[in-house]
Design a binder for these strands. Structure first.
Lengths: 156, 156
DNA sequence: CACGATTAAATCGTGTACGATTTATCTAGG
DNA sequence: CCTAGATAAATCGTACACGATTTAATCGTG
């Protein structure tokens, strides 16, 4: 490997990780995260916070565990994240009266107001990928299948 | 979407994120991370620490910035990570005498001793993917290209 | 030689992630 | 009805990840 500190590497010279799909997933996820950060900064959201808002726009009053199933996260990550959304005035949290163990998360008017500004986010990201819809679709299919398999193998 | 809290969702019913490649990358990266955690726990390494060790096994005495180019990370992330590796006795850090700004990271004998145990890690992971080499290769190609594009769009 | 600009690490603050544990609530079997 | 187990959130400690800043060393140009 002949990495130069000045010129960031390209795939053609990707160092000792060429063989590792895992590294590809890892570094692409980092790149997405950084890109989202620049797009979402205007909204004052992080990427996981954005995902929670999108989930609630799709269906409101979800339990923490339901959000966790959708995002593949658990309460140890979600609870503080949701509390920050609450502090920002975007959601409210309240115990379910039918089952006091459950905390349901609802969008405030202000939170629902993000819908329009959120709508254009995927388009912005799409441009940055520089790839065709077909390529992206194939990648997504493969990744979802891979993710499912990894999570399944984790469980046993 | 009809998510049940009891049964984790599959791709066929992936909630409101079906359309989002970014979410696929994000959640697959999380799944990889969790899987690696269970494999690497025996070695006492995290996944990013493992990547640093692999990079140093490939070429020793790399500068922090060179490791950063290989891993797409910067000193704010790498410095504390490398200090933890140093505290674990796996690497040493020393200023480059030719350029005192540069810190070079070297494997200790103990660090190099991980090579054998690290060698079998990719095989373990491969099994968990449940996918063919061809599929994985295609995914990796696509992801590296995507990652390159995202990083390029980030720079301007 | 000087000195402003650049570069390499380090530092700091915030926000995920996650294993492990804790607390509160609910449910079933006796 | 009452308690053992299960379940949902929350809490705690550790480790990334990153924007912004700081410190120290080097370089470039006059």
């Amino acid at each position: 490997m002949t990495l130069s500190a000045q010129e960031p590497q390209k795939s053609e010279d990707a160092g000792p990780f060429d063989r590792f799909l895992c590294f590809a997933a890892y570094s692409t996820s980092l790149a997405f995260n950084r890109l989202y950060k620049s797009v979402l900064d205007d909204l004052g959201l992080t990427y996981p916070q954005y995902l929670v808002i999108v989930a609630l726009l799709h269906r409101d009053r979800q339990a923490v565990s339901e959000l966790g199933d959708a995002l593949f996260l658990e309460s140890n990550t979600l609870t503080p994240l949701i509390k920050r959304l609450e502090a920002a005035g975007l959601v409210t949290r309240q115990r379910d009266s039918a089952d006091e163990r459950v905390v349901r998360v609802s969008l405030t008017a202000q939170g629902r107001g993000l819908a329009d500004r959120i709508a254009c986010v995927p388009t912005d990201i799409l441009k940055a990928t520089g790839m065709s819809i077909e390529e992206l679709g194939a990648l997504q299919q493969g990744l979802m299948k891979l993710g499912d398999n990894l999570r399944a193998s984790q469980r046993d």
